[in-house]
Amino acid sequence: MVKQTTGILSGYILEDETRLTLRQLCDACAVRAEYIIELVDEGFIEPSGVERSHWCFNGISIKRVQTAKRLQHDLGINLAGVALAIELIDEIDFLRARLDRM
């Protein structure tokens, strides 16, 4: 195995990168615009701005779209199912965090 070392890298905090256009979100997630529109219709990600051309997504949308894509592909569930699964996972995470503090 070859080892490769590089200099110190700096990235962005995804959740702080607040402004992404529809096009940028598509590029970041390697999906078509239609897919993002479906996820918006499902209420799974929420852009600000009314018209599609002015939609603005926050950074965490990248994470949500990628998770949706993986769950849909790996487990063969539809978008409504993906949205439900992720909402339940978020709730479990929240409850686990509370449990850890007790």
Binding site: M1, K3, T5, T6
Partner: peptide, 10 residues
Amino acid sequence: TTKERVLKIN
């Protein structure tokens, strides 16, 4: 093949 990459990250 598999390569191991070591990254230093801020």
